[in-house]
Design a protein around this nucleic acid. Structure first.
Ligand SMILES: [Zn+2]
Ligand SMILES: [Zn+2]
Ligand SMILES: [Zn+2]
Ligand SMILES: [Zn+2]
Lengths: 173, 173
DNA sequence: CCAGTCATGTTATTCTGTTGCAAATCAGTG
DNA sequence: CACTGATTTGCAACAGAATAACATGACTGG
């Protein structure tokens, strides 16, 4: 199947405790298998990212990190983020300068992201149709693709079901 | 035709003087028609962006701007950039924090960008197949699309024709 | 001329991310 | 254990990207 919804919109409340726990377990396992170290700082940052189901900013992470890790500085969090990105455990959302947990770190991939402008929810897809179409279109230009950044902004299902004004941000444009 | 190459890779050297002049003329015309003012600062910034056929950084623009416009400050250039973005005369490349001239400002559009990691060349597409596929895929998630950021990194045709080491950046990964 | 809008000047600040080097920790080795 | 080399962290400074806030100037239309 071409369409792989890695992280859907969390419309119905889910067991988030478990959701995070699963993600952490996957991460542990993956790092073990790869022979890289998911150190306490890295683990904590990943936890903080998963804690919200939204894109998280580096300096927000830093603030939270400082609460129980006195002496944390920008490099602390950026190094952890670099590690997590390398291991495919998180993704960076370029258009937001923010980071989000990867819903399927079992194989490395670039995701395609649906970003709700009202509630900040993000769904991750990993759709081969999209990947392939872009690669094909690029090829017609003689271009060889190494990396794709696909970020789609709009309104998620939950927010569409709601009168404009209720959700976060008064964008009565 | 679905495939619209707005700005192709400039493989053969082209008449860049004219290329810029045309772009400026289009911009003048478009602003006139829209009843907005392409002031000297805005015009200069657009010129500077077109001067290179690459993504240009805001602070590089600022430096250049200062050469003949003493007293230019960050807001000077960011305000000009905002204006040019609004008028669809330039695009912002999110993954680079950089700006590039739009090859077809005649109608407003989001572009899809092919970015060469070796030589920094960028080609702009505005391909309805891509746009539509993404909209369709988003729709299957109940998502309504307002905006798309499509940035594809890789190697452009000219650079593919050249042994790795010659071009900028030693990425013998 | 006056008021209103748009554009610019100016200063400071915030947010985002990196560099460089020293200290600590860890894994393997004899 | 002690020695070594690699990885990770601590720390201080800095660079780069963007915005806030408020004053000033310039171009409208009456
Ligand atoms: Zn969850
Ligand atoms: Zn993912
Ligand atoms: Zn364009
Ligand atoms: Zn190239």
């Amino acid at each position: 199947m071409s369409e792989d919804i890695v992280t859907p919109f969390r419309s119905h409340p889910h067991n988030h405790q478990r959701c995070v726990a699963d993600a952490m377990a996957l991460a542990e396992e993956r790092c073990g298998r790869r022979g890289v170290r998911l150190t306490p700082i890295r683990r904590r940052v990943l936890e903080l990212i998963w804690g919200r189901h939204e894109p998280v900013k580096a300096y927000d992470l830093l603030d939270q990190l400082r609460e129980d890790h006195r002496g944390a500085a920008p490099p602390t969090v950026y190094r952890a983020l670099d590690f997590l990105l390398e291991q495919g455990l998180i993704h960076r959302i370029e258009s937001l300068n923010a980071y989000i947990g990867c819903g399927d770190p079992s194989h490395p991939h670039l995701g395609q992201f649906l970003i709700c402008d009202r509630c900040n929810a993000v769904a991750e897809m990993d759709d081969s149709d999209i990947r392939d179409l872009l690669a094909r279109k690029a090829a017609t230009q003689g271009f060889h693709v190494n990396w794709q950044t696909i970020e789609i902004n709009g309104v998620c299902p939950s927010c569409r079901a709601v009168p404009e004004s209720v959700s976060a941000g008064d964008d009565s444009d």
